[in-house]
Structures are given as structure tokens and as C-alpha cells.
Design a protein around this nucleic acid. Structure first.
Lengths: 184, 184
DNA sequence: GGGTCTTTACCGAACGTTCTGTTTAGAGAA
DNA sequence: TTCTCTAAACAGAACGTTCGGTAAAGACCC
């Protein structure tokens, strides 16, 4: 059997990057094709469902990467160390603020595609909340602060995209270990 | 002379809302037409430069509204009161988190359109920085915290769009008066 | 006041391009 | 060969844009 010219994982990562950078609707098959080296027909061969199936694959991959990135939050051990590991994972995932966020991109999509980002967002907040609770925060406050910290990072990614200034992202990630482990 | 069917201000506000909600590329003339009640050809009569001129008008209007929203920050008087007025202005501008942000939308556009959002972002951070300095913060820390507070709000708006949860936005705006006036 | 004229606002129809999605034929490894 | 994958051409719809024409108001002269 003839081998694929690009493996599934790098293929989906490249597709996901285009969607994150341009938004789902603006991520045309031409852009997706150029980014992957596969012609449109070949993309349809790999994803018979078209753009929708590509988005599903990108989201499944994001969920997988998120799960790995957030795993230390749900582990046992010192909350400070776990928080630092999660912060490192976030920094690597978004390449210090250079990479766009799929959640931001989907927040501009139509309602049906928009709601597909909610689970990722919820998983993220839940990870932060878990560390905060383990660090002694009350459940109610922990849930809110977790959400707020996710917002801080998402907003920093928006600013990094819009102005090219990665400072807010780097500060947000740098503060994360202490923010996640000091109870109010 | 025949009267316009929709005045410039509500027209541009409606166009701006479509762009903010869907992003610049996804804001098709069909959507813009439906949102304003003007047919495509009529939009070209009002904006001969097409979508680019529509975006320029939306940005000019945003700069105008931002200027009004942030004016209390540059006024004289009690920083606490000024911060509260700015927070109220932000809450009203984004309708408690229901409205999308044009800056977020432009962060997904092509590079040439993307950079058009930078002045708005800078004006916003500068307003926060001014209040922080007046409240006794050092210039360097004030500049960074100002940016971080902008990121907090932008991120909260993304979460409000993506998940429908306006809690993060309302908390961010509610915290703003104290965040802007307590030196580290 | 009645009847043109001018000016502006708006719209229907069409332009060429690009989009998503399909079909068909050929290239390439087992 | 046989089977998988890819390339190229295709169709139909939507895109941004342009153009000719129509509708509506004020201006102006009679």
C-alpha cells in the first residue's frame, strides 16, 4: 500500500494551526491545503466529511493535548510543583504566546461550532480549580478564580496575536504557580 | 435629497457588531446586508471602498466610543471614582459581556487588518496605566498591570462568547475599581 | 400650487473569482 | 496485479464588486 505523504498527527496539527490562526470560516480549503501540502481532493480523501470533520479532528487532538497538558493538575503531590508543571505545559502548548488558541477562533464561529469549544474550556478551568482546592481554597472561590485565570491567559493570547506583544502571556504563565497555590 | 433609510451611526454600529461577532473575513456582505437592512449595492453606495472602508468606519467609531469610555481615566480627581466610572463604561460598552469585542475579531484577521486594532489596545492600556500611576503605582509596574487587566477583560469576553458564561466578565469589571487603585 | 430638474439613496442583475464538495483518471508501492 | 492514494477537472453556490436604473425628496421657475 502506498504510504501517506504526511502522517495524521502532523497533518491535524497543521490544520488546527490554520483554524486557530484564521478562524473556522476563514480557514478555506486553499489555506488548509497550502499549510499541509495536500491538495483539496486529498484532504477530502483523508477527511470525507470535509471541513466539519477536519474541525472535529482538530478538536479531538486539542482535547488530547489539553489532557496531557493538564494531567499534573489532577495528579497527587505538592500543589506548587503540579502548578508549575501545568504552567510549563501551557507555555509549551502556546509556544510562549506565539501560537493562536483554537478556543478563541471558535468563539467567533457559528453557534453550532462555537459550543464545541466549551468542553475544552471546562476541562481547563476544572484543572485549575482542582489545584486551588488542593492548595486550600474553598470550592466556590476556587471555581471562580480558576475561570478567571483561564480568562487571563486567553486574553493574553488575544493581545499577543493582535499586537505582537507576548509580555502579558509570559507574565500570566509566570504568575500561574503562585496564583494557583495561594488561598485568598 | 432623498433621506437615508438608516443613519450613519446606527448603520456603523450594526456593521461593527457583525464584524465583532463573526470576524472580518466571515462577515460577508450578505450578513452585513441582513443586519442593516441595506442591500449589498446600497452598502457600496455608503462605503464605496467596500469591506475595507466598512472596517475603517467601524474602527473609527470604536476609537470614538473607546475615547468616551476611557475619558474618566485621564480626568482629574479621585482615582477610585475615576476607576469606577471607567468600569461602568466598559460594562455598558460590552453589555455585561453579551457583546463581542472588535479587537478579538481582528486578532484573527490577516496581518494588515490585524494591526489596525493595536491603537485601540494601546489606548485602553494607557488609560488603565494612568489611573494606576495616579493611585501611587510605579510607572513600570503600572504599565504591566494595565496590560494584564486589559487581557483579563478580553479573555473574559472570549469566554462569554464561547461558553455563554458572563461570570468572568462581570467579576473582572467588578474587581476593576480596586485593581486599578491599590498599589502593589 | 403645479410641473420639471437635480441630487441623492437605494436596489436588481450581473460580473469574475473563490468557495466547498464530487468525480474521474492516473501514479505508486506492495 | 491490486489496492491506496493523489492530481486535475468539474459543478454549483457564495463571495466581493460593479453598473444601470428607479424611487424619493428639495430646488427652482412658471
Amino acid at each position: 500500500m502506498r504510504p501517506v505523504s504526511i502522517e495524521d498527527t502532523p497533518l491535524i496539527d497543521a490544520l488546527s494551526r490554520v483554524i486557530s490562526r484564521h478562524g473556522f470560516e476563514a480557514a478555506s480549503l486553499r489555506l488548509l491545503s497550502e499549510a499541509t501540502g495536500l491538495k483539496r481532493a486529498s484532504l477530502y480523501h483523508r477527511f470525507p466529511g470535509g471541513k466539519d470533520e477536519i474541525l472535529e479532528a482538530a478538536l479531538a487532538r486539542a482535547a488530547e493535548r489539553f489532557s496531557a497538558m493538564l494531567a499534573p493538575a489532577f495528579a497527587q503531590g505538592d500543589p506548587v510543583e503540579r502548578a508549575r508543571q501545568v504552567a510549563d505545559g501551557i507555555d509549551e502548548y502556546y509556544q510562549g504566546g506565539q501560537e493562536s488558541c483554537l478556543i478563541v477562533a471558535l468563539s467567533l464561529a457559528d453557534e453550532e461550532h462555537q459550543k464545541m469549544a466549551a468542553p475544552c474550556l471546562a476541562a481547563w478551568a476544572d484543572a485549575f480549580r482542582t489545584v486551588l482546592v488542593d492548595a486550600g481554597e474553598t470550592p466556590k472561590v476556587a471555581a471562580e478564580r480558576a475561570q478567571d485565570l483561564v480568562a487571563q491567559i486567553e486574553g493574553a493570547l488575544v493581545i499577543a496575536s493582535a499586537s505582537g506583544d507576548r509580555g502579558p502571556f509570559q507574565r500570566a504563565v509566570g504568575r500561574l504557580p503562585t496564583e494557583l497555590t495561594q488561598a485568598a
